[in-house]
Simulated assay, not measured.
Amino acid sequence: MEAGNKHDGNSLSGHKGTILIIEDEDAISRVLAAYVRKAGYDSRICANGTEALEAFESARPALVLLDVMLPGMNGWEVLRRLRQRSSCPVIMLTSKGDVGDRIQGLNDGADDYMTKPFEPGEVVARIQAVLRRPAQSLVGSDQVTFGSVRIDFKSRSVYLNGASLTIMPRDLSLLLFLAEHPNRIFEREHLIERVWGIDYDGSDRAVDLAVKRLRKLLLHWPAEEGEIRTLRGMGYQLYANTRS
């Protein structure tokens, strides 16, 4: 059976959703598939980027495990193309341990980053941690509306003037967290801990860059309804007119 068509499952298949494993080393992909099945997920294995992009549409995965060093199209390009069509969570897998690579992956839209060799059990734990983000909404509803912006926490969807916005997963998690706590101020360090995770060791500039991208997407959101504000020396705030 070709790598792009491998579909490993058991009696728990589909119970928690599908994990798409994009990895060209057969031994690694099979071990990962076994562990995610044991945790109650279905698995789909692809050995290269081209097959993976095709499989992504049919598998509709809950999360993608993406190796950086793939034959032909590398993992960075696969990530870029995935982000053009979806905000599905992505965890990068690589043998590179350089901090710069980790920052590139996270800033390009990856949700987490694991360096080989890794324990498969830890990969499953990371999968579960990413899929738990963001924390349970504190606004008392599955949805909140700030004027022309509507945010659906349950489906992790954001709409501006009725049109759905395509937002990179990490940026989306940041926006959802801020929207769960409207008009509260958060320091960068707090946002990194709650959104990026306590083990993140990259630059806190990641928060600034994520806010910059969100502001660009929300450019046509009237300021009197709401906006992401920078409070010098204090942090960030999603100002929202809750009566709009």
Rank of each mutant, 00 (worst) to 15 (best):
S173E: 09
L165E: 02
V149Y: 06
R132E: 06
A129C: 05
Y200N: 09
S173I: 00
G121M: 12
V149N: 04
F146L: 05
D171N: 13
Q136F: 15
M168K: 12
S137G: 11
R132G: 04
G197A: 04
G202R: 06
E189A: 10
V207S: 09
H220Q: 14
V130W: 04
A129H: 08
G162L: 01
H181V: 05
L174V: 03
R232N: 12
G202T: 06
T230W: 14
A210V: 07
L231I: 14
G235V: 07
P134V: 04
L178F: 10
L160M: 12
I198L: 00
I127A: 04
A135R: 13
H181M: 11
P120M: 03
H220E: 15
D208N: 11
R170G: 10
Y200A: 08
I228F: 02
L217F: 10
K216V: 08
P134N: 10
R132H: 09
A163R: 15
V207P: 03
R232G: 10
L172C: 07
Q237P: 00
L218K: 12
H220M: 12
R213L: 05
R188C: 03
Q237K: 12
V149Q: 08
S141Q: 06
V139R: 05
R215M: 10
R194Q: 12
G162F: 04
G197W: 02
A163V: 07
R215I: 06
I151Y: 01
P134Y: 14
F118W: 10
A179C: 05
A129T: 14
A129G: 03
K216W: 15
L191H: 10
V144N: 09
T166E: 04
Q128M: 13
